[in-house]
Amino acid sequence: MSADTHHGHAADHGHAHGNGHGHGHGHGHDDPHGGAAHGSRKGYWIGFLLSVLLTAPAFALVMSGVIADPRLTAGIVMALAMVQIVVHMIYFLHMNTKSEAGWTMMALIFTVIIVVIVISGSLWVMYHMNLNMMPQMQAEMSSAGM
């Protein structure tokens, strides 16, 4: 069994090495397993038009104030931003699961997890800190003032 896994590993190694070679010669885009994917003129236009279609409504909604409920507007704007980030990732950054043998995607997933934990965790903790600490402090301050 051990010999088998080793053999598999060696084959993997040779494969990764082949990718590097192709990439070094600047024709990585011919190889679907190549280092970085390249875009086409059409791909960039699609990405650009989608970005415009996602950005313009977000600004229009907030600037015109069509929707009376600011919470609903905020939700729509955030959803548009999320979709636009994915559009940029695919059409401009050419993210896919194959480039660099999947390691760019692994790094991206890891980063997204950390970003979500950091931002939502900070907001959650600090919101409760504000909620629980501030009234007491204000009460102390006002009693001290009186």
Partner: peptide, 21 residues
């Protein structure tokens, strides 16, 4: 064999991810 720059793109991507943090 390590052709020059064959790991540059992955390394640069990792830099971008840390920048993202």
């Amino acid at each position: 064999e390590h052709p020059p720059g064959h790991s540059t793109m992955l390394g640069f991507w990792l830099y971008l991810m840390s920048d993202c943090l």
